[in-house]
Write a protein that binds this DNA or RNA. Structure first.
Lengths: 245, 245
DNA sequence: ACAGCGTGTAACAATCTGTAACAGCGATCG
DNA sequence: CGATCGCTGTTACAGATTGTTACACGCTGT
């Protein structure tokens, strides 16, 4: 492979300079650039293997640029940003970026990422994980998937164990739908299962539901949210509103 | 709402009869039917609110029919099958079915599901969970996501804890990509996180990586798979082949 | 070679999870 | 209407899991 050609897009001349210099020193050809127009002209005029795109570009927005580029380009794009907030990161992935790095970054990390993305681009493309960021509201309660926080109707934060959280998620994903214990277990990704057909499920789910009730039901004895469907399993008896994170 | 009209598609006349009768008794209008042609003609000639589609239809295949129907129809479809195997279930969802019931089913469960799907269709459409079913191969090892089973190159089955499994999954999803501890934690859905910016991560990830190494590395002291990237984090230093479940 | 970090790991404590056992409730059948 | 059977709720307990801490070892750069 010839020397990879990287486009370094940043509106701050100093940052741009440091990055290009650093990349040069490490064997890459780095082309500085400060606007979408610049990117387009580079793309039009020659090969570009990877774009390092700053998210904050004065009046332009890196994320939007990324989305627009993706409309007609396959070039790998790494978003660079000072905003380490997760939702920003996510916005990046959803927009088709191949990776995302928070500024200030560890130079080694930058290098590693650049190499990884280039290598990946050569093979095919896979995906970095994507994390659910929505907030769910149900019967006065809310569950913030981003921070894994559950709040009661009065705004009090409730601590759920990991398994309880997993259970809650299953219900939130299937409101008003009666689920059997087997389905719940499967959806929760139960590991300790015998293979194949006839399981002897045990009462693990029952107990877990009980514990969750104890935390998110006003009167656990007379559950309004997590209702039992006798002979079937359990239902979340509430509508769930989903808000984008 | 008027009485819901359901299409009961099954090639066995007896089953078809029982189901339609049962549904009738419970206030639905059930229309028996035994082939894709039959479905199409019903769809063409009148309203159909829901299709109960058997997966095993002699020479026809319910899953394929479902996929074809979905190409030009929005009717809710519940797949019914004697094969309770998970991958079948998944094939159902991937093909656009709204739900899936294993035969023999609890009549009450069938009713509940029918009602739920109808209700959901009225609101909008959401999705039941979807479970990953692939098998991953990496450096001689394999991870079967369906059964959560890890096998060594000699075929010996290894037991991983839930958290170890989660960690492994993160690496499998990001082969060859150096991940920081923060990213790993985030991808694993760590709950105990302070909000916002500067975390004090702790060494949990390090220890966890160590434990995983102890299970899937031949020489944990000199790891070949889970390699340390000094100053950065960890990488899975192997390519990952993914096979459909 | 030395100092300074960064990482590996052992031991510990706290938490979490599943099982078992029993009690309560509902349904079914006579 | 009452007895019985089956299913679910609840609690206690034991075992497993997980994160923390502390210390040792190995790099890195001077």
């Amino acid at each position: 492979m010839t020397i990879p050609r990287l486009l370094v897009v940043d509106d701050d001349a100093e940052t741009r300079g440091m990055m290009t210099e650093f990349l040069h020193r490490n064997g890459f050809m780095a082309l500085p650039c400060d606007s979408e127009t610049g990117i387009r002209s580079h793309l039009a005029s020659g090969r570009v293997d990877l774009i390092l795109l700053d998210v904050m570009l004065g009046d332009e927005n890196g994320v939007e640029i990324c989305a627009r580029l993706r409309a007609d380009q396959d070039v790998p794009i790494i978003l660079v940003s000072a905003l380490s907030a997760d939702h920003q990161r996510m916005a990046g992935y959803e927009v088709g970026a191949d990776d995302y790095i928070a500024k200030p970054f560890n130079p080694d990390l930058l290098l590693a990422r650049v190499k990884a993305v280039l290598a990946r681009a050569r093979r095919s493309s896979s995906l970095i994980y994507r994390r659910q960021t929505s907030t769910f509201r149900f019967g006065g309660w809310s569950y913030d998937a981003k921070h894994d926080e559950v709040r009661s109707p009065d705004g009090v934060q409730i601590a759920l164990s990991r398994r309880e959280t997993a259970l809650l998620k299953v219900f939130l994903a299937n409101p008003r739908i009666p689920l059997t214990r087997e389905e719940i277990a499967a959806a929760m990704d139960v590991s300790g299962e015998g293979a194949g057909g006839g399981e002897t499920p045990g009462r693990a789910i029952d107990v877990l539901v009980g514990r969750l009730r104890g935390k998110i039901e006003t009167r656990p004895k007379d559950p309004e949210l997590l209702r039992t469907e006798r002979g079937i399993g359990y239902v979340l008896a509430a509508d769930v509103a989903v808000e984008a994170g």
